[in-house]
C-alpha cells in the first residue's frame, strides 16, 4: 500500500513538473493529452447513453423486475460507472448476440451486487456490506 502511495505521489509530482515546463515553452498550444482526455470522456458519455437506452427496452425492464432490481436504480448505477467501466460494459453489449441481451443484464446485475457488497450501493436486500 505504501509503495503504491509512494508511486502515485511520485507520478503526480513528475506530471505536475512536466505540465509546468511544457506550459512555459508554449503558452497557448493545447496538448495531445488534454484532447485525448476529453475524447475519452466523450466516449464514456456515449457508452453510458447506450447502456441506458438498452436498459429502457421493455423486455429488459421486465427481466430486471423479475430479478428484483428496480430499473430506475439500475439506471442511476450506470450513471455512476467510470468511463472505463462504461466502455467495457458497452462493448459487452456490442458483442452480445441479438438474443444475448440477458447476459448483459446479468453483468450489470453482478456489478450492482459487487458494489453492494463493497458498501457503495444497497440494492439487494440479502448482501451484507463489508464496511
Amino acid at each position: 500500500m505504501i509503495i503504491v502511495k509512494r508511486f502515485l505521489s511520485a507520478l503526480l509530482a513528475t506530471s505536475i513538473l512536466f505540465t509546468g515546463s511544457i506550459q512555459a515553452v508554449q503558452a497557448a498550444m493545447i496538448s495531445t493529452e488534454q484532447v485525448a482526455e476529453s475524447a475519452i470522456t466523450a466516449k464514456g458519455e456515449q457508452d453510458r447513453a447506450k447502456i441506458v437506452s438498452m436498459l429502457s427496452r421493455d423486455e429488459v425492464q421486465s427481466e430486471l423486475v423479475a430479478r428484483g432490481i428496480d430499473p430506475m436504480e439500475a439506471k442511476s448505477r450506470v450513471a455512476a460507472l467510470t468511463d472505463d467501466e462504461a466502455s467495457s460494459l458497452a462493448s459487452q453489449l456490442d458483442n452480445a448476440p441479438a438474443g444475448g441481451i440477458i447476459g448483459a443484464i446479468v453483468l450489470i446485475f453482478l456489478v450492482l451486487l459487487l458494489t453492494d457488497i463493497l458498501g457503495f450501493t444497497k440494492i439487494f436486500p440479502f448482501t451484507r456490506s463489508i464496511r
Binding site: 508554449q26 498550444m29 493545447i30 496538448s31 495531445t32 484532447v35 485525448a36 475524447a39
Partner: peptide, 13 residues
C-alpha cells in the same frame, strides 16, 4: 482520428 492528428501536429510543432 482526432487524438492521433493532434499528436502529429503537436510533434511537428
Amino acid at each position: 482520428h482526432l487524438v492521433l492528428l493532434m499528436g502529429l501536429g503537436n510533434s511537428a510543432y
